[in-house]
Amino acid sequence: MSTREAPPVAGSGASRTPPPGTTANAAGAAPARRKPSKRHRVPFRARLRRDWPLLLMTLPGAIVLLVFHYLPALGNVVAFQDYNPWAGDTPLQAFLGSEWIGFGNFENLFSSDAFWEAVWNTLSITAFQLVFFFPLPIALAILLNSVLSTKLRSFIQTVVYLPHFFSWVLVVTFFVQMLGGAGLLAQEMREAGLQPWNIMTNPDTFIILVTAESVWKDVGWGTIIFLAALSTIDTELYEQSAVDGASRWRRLWHVTLPGLRPVIVLLLILRLGDALSVGFEQFILQRDAVGRGAAEVLDTFVYYHAIATGDYGFGAAAGLFKAAVGLLLILAANKMAHLLGERGIYSKS
């Protein structure tokens, strides 16, 4: 993780210098790593006496993370147990009383067809959304950026950011009400004498449906980071290329897209690192309507096998598999970004 003052992503090419307010910090911290600065020659106990209020302030947050993040992360070891919730009165006692079975859960997992089906569904949805969702915020941002009237533009922005703040229950509700069997579209089609097609319960088109829902919810929100990046592209570049006779489309290709490249690479890495997560609530909410064959993804697989049916060890094994592969993916994607000459999400500083 980078601890140095990161330049704003949007202008990572242009503004490498930290903002004015942070120079004091950066100057204080950066040399400290290479050779002890004056500040660091202060003896440890004196520094402790000076800094303890700051340490105390981080404590409550650190404890919450310890209990609700790191403890469950360690708790993943139930994947190596035949965890029996009735082996004790509390989960802790049950954990201590359960039998260790090595890789037994993983053997069951890897020989389970339902598991591979969930992996396949997850990866197909990721791939599909990479093609049909990922470019849309970029396109919409470029389009919005070309709207000259500031008033009109901020009106559109206000509207398209809003669905980002809706819960998945609400998003699915809106889709059911608009496109479902008793929804607005079906209603209008019946009135026009057409046979309404049911989109909400059709497993074959489910991948399109979930992508459409994700687009509806987040395409507007996704434009924010690209709009910020667009606003840092030097207008002189556009002017000069226009003077040199570059058309609108050539300017898009040779000025706009290269300007967006660092952000696109960054977001692509984050998406690839998260390839095994495609959303959770969205799928649980719709799994009953379209069936397991299409809507079972890794996260819902864990939920249904562990919490709903009580096979905790097996579910934890699937969860641990997902976490381990996810970690590898994010490290690999970041490495790739460095090889491509981009900053990536973190760097050794």
Binding site: A73, D299, V302, G315
Partner: peptide
């Protein structure tokens, strides 16, 4: 950001 707590252990905690 890198370490994922997992649904099952979170539920147990």
């Amino acid at each position: 950001f890198l370490i994922y707590p997992g649904l099952v252990p979170s539920y147990l905690v």
